[in-house]
Simulated scan of single mutants.
Amino acid sequence: MNKSMVLGVVLGAAAATAVGTIAGYRAYVAEDAPQFAEVLSINAVNESYTVPREECVQRQVTKVAPKKDEHQIAGTAVGAVVGGLIGNQVGGGSGKKIATLAGAAAGGYAGKKVQEDMQNKDTYTEVETHCATVNDKKQRVIGYDVEYKIADQVAVVRMDKKPASDQLPVKDGKLDLDKLQPGSTQ
């Protein structure tokens, strides 16, 4: 045998041994590697938000009726006439004229005040609607923080959906995110 042939046989045997050793090690590691991670806890992640809405209440309101005679002219006139007639009954001569004028003035003032008081007591009740915007506070779940354990290592992953079991799939010592529901991790 020549040297080339011996060298080829030796190298071939070494390569075959190396490939066999690597394949055996990978099979050994694959058998002992964890297939699942243990779920330790699941915590919902909430988001707060507000929803505006309009809230209305009905209220009874008492209002003063609109005045037809804002300056109380009718009351003043009637009071002046009545006061003047009463004043005219008092005294004689020029005192009678002064009493008539004083009676008319006092009657006019009294008539104005009586009409004003009557107008202020003339009320009506109306139902009014009062509205305001109220913000209701609400919460919604936006995901789940899942604490898990692979071998002796503990970690947390955020998932869109709550895991269906207490185990998560593992590949090559890490969570197999492809086997979890699509779009379920962040």
Results as ranks from 00 to 15, higher is better:
137 K>D: 03
107 G>V: 09
148 Y>I: 05
104 A>F: 01
123 T>A: 04
144 Y>H: 06
125 T>V: 09
105 A>P: 02
114 V>L: 10
141 V>Y: 11
147 E>S: 12
102 A>F: 07
137 K>W: 03
125 T>Q: 07
121 K>V: 09
145 D>E: 14
103 G>Q: 01
111 G>M: 03
129 T>E: 07
117 D>L: 04
104 A>M: 05
139 Q>C: 04
129 T>N: 02
112 K>M: 14
126 E>R: 11
124 Y>P: 05
130 H>G: 09
111 G>P: 00
139 Q>Y: 12
127 V>H: 01
120 N>E: 10
115 Q>L: 09
137 K>T: 13
115 Q>S: 10
126 E>K: 13
118 M>V: 13
101 L>S: 12
130 H>W: 11
124 Y>V: 10
135 N>D: 00
127 V>Q: 02
132 A>S: 13
135 N>Y: 08
123 T>N: 04
106 A>W: 00
143 G>W: 02
113 K>A: 13
141 V>R: 10
129 T>G: 02
118 M>H: 02
103 G>W: 00
141 V>I: 15
143 G>H: 06
115 Q>M: 10
100 T>E: 08
102 A>C: 09
102 A>L: 15
101 L>P: 05
105 A>Y: 03
136 D>N: 09
131 C>P: 03
124 Y>F: 14
124 Y>H: 12
116 E>Q: 12
134 V>D: 14
148 Y>Q: 09
102 A>Q: 03
109 Y>G: 12
130 H>Q: 15
119 Q>H: 03
140 R>I: 03
146 V>M: 07
149 K>P: 02
110 A>L: 11
144 Y>L: 06
123 T>H: 02
115 Q>A: 12
143 G>Y: 05
106 A>K: 04
131 C>N: 01
105 A>K: 01
113 K>H: 11
117 D>M: 03
128 E>R: 15
110 A>S: 10
147 E>L: 06
135 N>L: 02
130 H>E: 15
126 E>G: 08
112 K>D: 01
140 R>G: 01
120 N>L: 13
139 Q>M: 12
130 H>K: 15
138 K>C: 06
121 K>P: 02
134 V>C: 11
117 D>I: 02
111 G>W: 00
117 D>G: 10
148 Y>V: 06
139 Q>F: 12
120 N>A: 13
101 L>C: 08
100 T>M: 12
100 T>A: 09
116 E>I: 08
132 A>M: 10
139 Q>E: 14
130 H>D: 11
